[in-house]
């Protein structure tokens, strides 16, 4: 699936959830279920420090595609991190750098991407884009 198709799938999943409780219970479940990152990668280098919750991000390039793993100490953030990774992981740096991320807004959680919330998610998305641009530059040099 393309990045856009994955976002559409998530939006469609969320559209059937009626109440705020359903939506958050789903995100919390995602956060609880996913052992997102190997402990060895929870290094200060991989820490994206937000004001409220901490987010770790690890990036690997395999066969021309970027793979992300991540974690957070807040479970709602962790659920959103797992959604973001689900959308962007396994695509080429070029696709990631060019991607328009609109699903967070569409599922009614836009405040999570506002700088005032500073929960690390916005910084994580920026970091993912920066990595993809850097990897793309590296690929272009080869």
């Amino acid at each position: 699936m393309t990045i856009q198709e994955i976002q559409e799938e998530i939006i469609s999943d969320f559209s059937v959830m009626g109440s705020w409780e359903d939506k958050y219970e789903y995100i919390i479940q995602l956060g609880k279920e996913l052992p997102l990152i190997a402990e060895e990668y929870k290094t200060p280098d991989n820490l994206i420090k937000g004001c409220q919750s901490r987010v770790w991000l690890h990036t690997e390039l395999k066969d021309g595609k970027l793979f992300f793993t991540g974690d957070s100490d807040a479970v709602i953030t962790k659920g959103l991190v797992s959604l973001m990774i689900y959308v962007l992981s396994g695509h080429t740096p070029q696709e990631i750098a060019a991607a328009d991320i609109y699903f967070i807004d569409a599922i009614g959680l836009s405040s999570h991407l506002s700088p005032t919330r500073s929960n690390g998610l916005l910084s994580m998305l920026k970091q993912m884009k920066l990595y993809s641009i850097a990897y793309q530059a590296k690929i272009n040099q080869q």
């Binding site: 705020w20 958050y24 919390i28 004001c51 409220q52 919750s53 100490d73 807040a74 479970v75 709602i76 953030t77 929960n119």
Partner: peptide, 20 residues
């Protein structure tokens, strides 16, 4: 429970607290 998670779910219930 992380204070941020608590604050977020209180906000959904119309309750404004500070977290952090």
């Amino acid at each position: 429970i992380h204070p941020f998670d608590m604050g977020e779910l209180l906000d959904q219930q119309g309750i404004a607290v500070r977290t952090g």
